[in-house]
């Protein structure tokens, strides 16, 4: 192997690293700011008329006491980021984990009456995993039916 080969390889290594670094820089810095998976209520409000009629993802927390169950699987609730909140109407069956205070990402369009019409309701799970104080107290049958009424011991 000639030293010429070695120089070529090292140059390739430096070139590839520089290219990968530049790529990362643009994705994280430049394009990254325009990559948005969901908008929070405040951001939707800031977008103003742009949000009207468009399909967007709205993310936030389900406001306490805002879940109203209607006929069949009809349901409405409020998505909040603590500052602003928006009403959401939903006709699909919510995921099992859906409950007050949990994070949700909803694919919505703004209906005429200012209510967000949900096409897809997703529940986001936090990074917390809690064991119950008394494992025997967790009734798995009940948990499969609903998550209402089961409290995290660490949070109370």
């Amino acid at each position: 192997m000639s030293s010429n080969d070695g120089r070529k390889r090292v140059a390739l290594a430096l070139g590839a690293c520089a290219f990968a670094g530049t790529l990362l820089y643009f994705v994280v810095g430049g394009i990254g700011n325009n990559l948005v998976y969901y908008w929070g209520p405040t951001e939707v409000l800031a977008a103003g008329p742009k949000a009207q009629g468009a399909s967007i993802r709205l993310g936030g927390l389900v406001e306490k006491g805002s879940i109203v169950k209607g006929e069949g699987s009809n349901m409405s609730f409020t998505v909040t980021d603590g500052k602003k909140s928006f009403p959401v109407r939903c006709t699909s069956v919510p995921p099992q984990m859906f409950r007050e205070g949990i994070g949700v990402v909803v694919e919505v369009t703004v209906a005429g009456d200012g209510v967000f019409e949900s096409h897809r309701l997703m529940v986001s799970h936090g990074n917390e995993y809690r064991a119950p104080d008394d494992p025997a107290s967790v009734d798995l049958k009940k948990l499969m039916d609903s998550t209402d009424g089961i409290r995290s011991p660490d949070k109370e």
Binding site: F19, L23, Y37, S124
Partner: peptide
């Protein structure tokens, strides 16, 4: 080397951007 740029992106994606994943 070029593809490896995606490795830190995977790890930090949940902190850089809004995401569904925790």
């Amino acid at each position: 080397i070029v593809a490896a740029a995606d490795v830190p992106l995977v790890y930090f994606s949940v902190r850089f951007w809004n995401s569904l994943h925790q």
